[in-house]
Protein backbone atom coordinates (compact mmCIF):
# COMPACT_ATOMS: atom_id res chain seq x y z
CA UNK A 1 0.00 0.00 0.00
CA UNK A 2 1.17 3.46 -0.82
CA UNK A 3 1.17 5.88 2.04
CA UNK A 4 0.48 8.78 -0.30
CA UNK A 5 -3.02 10.07 -0.90
CA UNK A 6 -4.00 11.64 -4.24
CA UNK A 7 -3.11 15.18 -3.22
CA UNK A 8 0.34 14.13 -2.06
CA UNK A 9 0.95 11.93 -5.10
CA UNK A 10 -0.07 14.73 -7.48
CA UNK A 11 2.14 17.19 -5.64
CA UNK A 12 5.11 14.95 -6.47
CA UNK A 13 3.99 14.06 -9.97
CA UNK A 14 6.01 16.55 -12.04
CA UNK A 15 9.15 15.85 -10.04
CA UNK A 16 8.46 12.13 -10.49
CA UNK A 17 8.20 12.53 -14.26
CA UNK A 18 11.37 14.64 -14.30
CA UNK A 19 13.20 11.95 -12.28
CA UNK A 20 13.93 14.36 -9.47
CA UNK A 21 12.59 12.33 -6.56
CA UNK A 22 14.45 10.17 -4.09
CA UNK A 23 14.16 6.41 -4.77
CA UNK A 24 11.87 6.09 -1.74
CA UNK A 25 9.44 8.70 -3.07
CA UNK A 26 9.62 7.28 -6.59
CA UNK A 27 8.48 3.95 -5.20
CA UNK A 28 5.67 5.60 -3.22
CA UNK A 29 4.39 7.55 -6.22
CA UNK A 30 4.62 4.49 -8.44
CA UNK A 31 2.61 2.40 -6.02
CA UNK A 32 -0.02 5.13 -5.80
CA UNK A 33 -0.25 5.41 -9.60
CA UNK A 34 -0.68 1.65 -9.92
CA UNK A 35 -3.62 1.82 -7.57
CA UNK A 36 -5.31 5.02 -8.69
CA UNK A 37 -6.78 5.38 -12.19
CA UNK A 38 -7.56 9.03 -11.70
CA UNK A 39 -3.97 9.92 -10.92
CA UNK A 40 -2.66 7.65 -13.69
CA UNK A 41 -4.77 9.63 -16.14
CA UNK A 42 -3.40 12.86 -14.81
CA UNK A 43 0.13 11.49 -15.00
CA UNK A 44 -0.35 10.71 -18.72
CA UNK A 45 -1.58 14.22 -19.31
CA UNK A 46 1.43 15.77 -17.57
CA UNK A 47 3.75 13.43 -19.41
CA UNK A 48 2.42 14.36 -22.83
CA UNK A 49 2.88 18.00 -21.91
CA UNK A 50 6.50 17.48 -20.85
CA UNK A 51 7.29 15.29 -23.86
CA UNK A 52 5.77 17.90 -26.15
CA UNK A 53 8.04 20.58 -24.67
CA UNK A 54 11.13 18.41 -24.92
CA UNK A 55 10.55 17.30 -28.49
CA UNK A 56 9.26 20.51 -30.03
CA UNK A 57 11.02 23.33 -28.28
CA UNK A 58 14.48 21.75 -28.45
CA UNK A 59 14.48 21.53 -32.24
CA UNK A 60 16.16 24.84 -32.86
CA UNK A 61 19.90 24.71 -33.38
CA UNK A 62 22.56 27.39 -33.51
CA UNK A 63 22.59 28.73 -37.08
CA UNK A 64 25.67 27.76 -39.10
CA UNK A 65 26.44 31.40 -39.92
CA UNK A 66 26.50 32.27 -36.22
CA UNK A 67 28.71 29.29 -35.44
CA UNK A 68 31.15 30.42 -38.14
CA UNK A 69 31.07 34.02 -36.87
CA UNK A 70 31.81 32.89 -33.33
CA UNK A 71 34.68 30.66 -34.42
CA UNK A 72 36.19 33.55 -36.40
CA UNK A 73 35.80 35.90 -33.41
CA UNK A 74 37.44 33.34 -31.12
CA UNK A 75 40.38 32.87 -33.49
CA UNK A 76 40.77 36.65 -33.75
CA UNK A 77 40.76 36.97 -29.95
CA UNK A 78 43.29 34.17 -29.76
CA UNK A 79 45.64 35.98 -32.12
CA UNK A 80 45.32 39.20 -30.17
CA UNK A 81 46.11 37.19 -27.09
CA UNK A 82 43.07 38.21 -25.07
Amino acid sequence: MSRLDCTEALAHLQDYLKRELTPELVAEVRVHLEQCRDCTGYARFEESFLVMLETRAAKETCPEALRARILAALRAAEERGN
Binding site: F49, M52, L53, R56, A57, K59
Partner: peptide
Protein backbone atom coordinates in the same frame (compact mmCIF):
# COMPACT_ATOMS: atom_id res chain seq x y z
CA UNK B 1 -7.01 18.37 -16.35
CA UNK B 2 -10.48 18.14 -14.85
CA UNK B 3 -11.83 20.04 -17.83
CA UNK B 4 -10.32 17.72 -20.42
CA UNK B 5 -10.36 14.37 -18.67
CA UNK B 6 -13.55 13.28 -20.42
CA UNK B 7 -12.74 14.52 -23.91
CA UNK B 8 -8.95 14.30 -24.18
CA UNK B 9 -7.62 12.66 -21.02
CA UNK B 10 -4.14 12.04 -22.38
CA UNK B 11 -3.64 15.62 -23.49
CA UNK B 12 -3.19 14.68 -27.13
CA UNK B 13 -4.23 18.20 -28.09
CA UNK B 14 -0.70 19.26 -27.15
CA UNK B 15 0.63 17.41 -30.18
CA UNK B 16 -1.66 19.32 -32.53
CA UNK B 17 -0.30 22.70 -31.58
CA UNK B 18 2.32 23.91 -34.06
CA UNK B 19 5.91 24.47 -32.91
CA UNK B 20 5.78 28.20 -33.49
CA UNK B 21 2.77 28.55 -31.23
CA UNK B 22 4.43 26.54 -28.47
CA UNK B 23 7.47 28.82 -28.61
Amino acid sequence: YRSIQDTDPEGSFFSQIVDAKVL
